[in-house]
């Protein structure tokens, strides 16, 4: 009958186990798979990430130099970050916030300055 009493008394005097969420947020832990991010300037548009993605969330267009991810299809497995040869796709620790409508994020690589081309040529 009084088996719970110890725990009850302990809970009365100890601090709450929960956080006051909107005012007090926990820092995301290291290496958490929050969402997929890309450093578009390093991307070579090889589209390995798009082929390996288990949920077909990534679309790569080599001609347009664009990289598109549908965050609402993504299952946060992190395979794209693992297979990327340039390591420009990575897992960002911060979770994606909820949204009112589904959308995809498109990144387009800006053309490199012409002077650089002249140097290499």
């Amino acid at each position: 009958m009084f088996d719970m009493l110890g725990s009850v008394l302990k809970n009365l005097v100890s601090r709450p186990a929960t956080r006051k969420y909107p005012f007090e947020k926990r820092e995301p832990l290291k290496d958490t798979r929050g969402q997929v991010g890309i450093n578009i300037d390093d991307c070579i548009f090889c589209s390995i990430c798009s082929r390996k993605c288990p949920s077909d969330a990534i679309n790569v267009n080599k001609a347009e130099k664009s990289w598109e991810i549908n965050h609402f299809k993504c299952v946060m497995c992190g395979v794209c970050a693992e297979v990327c040869p340039k390591k420009c796709v990575d897992m960002v620790e911060q979770y994606k916030t909820p949204a009112y409508s589904k959308s995809s994020a498109k990144y387009v690589q800006q053309p490199k300055p012409a002077s650089q081309d002249n140097k290499t040529a």
Binding site: L29, K30, D31, T32, R33, V75, M76, C77, G78, M91
Partner: peptide
């Protein structure tokens, strides 16, 4: 789970 695997439930 989150600290070792990066996700709480489906740890992949």
């Amino acid at each position: 789970m989150e600290e070792t695997a990066g996700s709480r439930v489906i740890i992949s």
